[in-house]
């Protein structure tokens, strides 16, 4: 690695900024268009709208088929919170066992867990659907939350194992001398110390569930239970040219939670991605 000279550094800064803005232009345009009156969305390419209106947000929020967009947001938030709790609890338990405890067949289970990380979920999705259909769970949150409660996102187990292995063993030993059993060590020591890994798990679970279209499309049927991705798709399906404004406005609304989480917890993103290579 050699450092740029001052003049080249300046040029590189300019280039990186320009490229970055070019990449972000579509998103900025999306935001600006959502404030434009319908007639200008397609004719006005500038970022700063000639005419600003909130109409799109008002129309969009009132939603389609008698369900407001607020309902979709609420449904999504409830679903995401449940999946976050499920994933953090179940994956941290498994990770503690793999990272700290000794038991029979540990290597076999560990290998099996690593293999499931790479498994495309399509080989399980059809029997899972049949199972949930037989349980009469279609159109409930069950099929979307139960897999998280049962730690099927093995990727997060791996992430936490890596983190837990980095914690000093002496802590466990001194806790054992003080009379703590494994359950207390998990609860009082590992969980608090592994907080960064738990937060990384929580934010990625939240954002991936927020954006997850496939399983929500599969399992939720009635508009009253629709989540944000399904609500947006409803807009898209029913949209004629005149309906783009509200759809773009609600698209912007749907991006807000991810952006808030990202900007308030940025360092966990970078750490999470660079230490474990979270896909994206």
């Amino acid at each position: 690695m050699n450092v740029y000279s001052r003049r080249t550094a300046w040029l590189v800064h300019a280039f990186i900024l320009a490229l970055g803005l070019l990449m972000l232009y579509p998103i900025l345009w999306l935001i600006s268009s959502s404030f434009k009156p319908d007639s200008l969305i397609f004719s006005d390419l500038r970022l700063w709208p000639a005419e600003v209106t909130l109409d799109n947000y008002v129309t969009g929020w009132s939603g389609l088929s008698k369900v407001t967009f607020g309902r979709y947001l609420l449904n999504s938030i409830v679903l995401c919170l449940l999946t976050v709790v499920g994933n953090v609890a179940s994956c941290s338990m498994a990770a503690y066992a793999f990272g700290r405890l000794n038991f029979s067949l540990k290597k076999v289970w560990f290998a099996l867990m690593m293999v499931t990380i790479m498994l495309p979920h399509h080989v399980t999705i059809i029997p899972q659907y049949i199972l949930f259909h037989k349980l009469d769970w279609i159109d409930t949150l069950g099929p979307l939350t139960l897999p998280k409660l049962l730690a099927t996102d093995a990727f997060f187990i791996f992430l936490m194992i890596q983190f837990i292995r980095g914690l000093p063993r002496e802590l466990d030993e001194s806790a054992t001398i003080d009379g703590c059993g494994p359950i207390q060590i998990y609860w009082r020591m590992i969980l608090p110390l592994a907080l960064p890994a738990l937060i990384t798990t929580a934010i990625f679970t939240f954002i991936w569930t927020w954006d997850d279209f496939f399983s929500q499309l599969l399992y939720l049927n009635s508009p009253g239970k629709y989540t944000v991705p399904l609500g947006l798709r409803l807009f898209l399906d029913s949209s004629s040219q005149s309906n783009w404004g509200p759809m773009l406005a609600m698209s912007v609304v749907s991006l807000v939670p991810s952006l808030i989480i990202f900007f308030s917890l940025q360092k966990y993103f970078v750490e999470g991605i660079s230490t474990t290579g979270i896909k994206g």
Partner: peptide, 23 residues
Amino acid sequence: NAVPYLFLLPWFLGLFVLTLGPM
């Protein structure tokens, strides 16, 4: 094994009921 397998219980259920069984 009792305690470790207790910690692994949710994952085991998921592994057998939602992954290996369906496969």
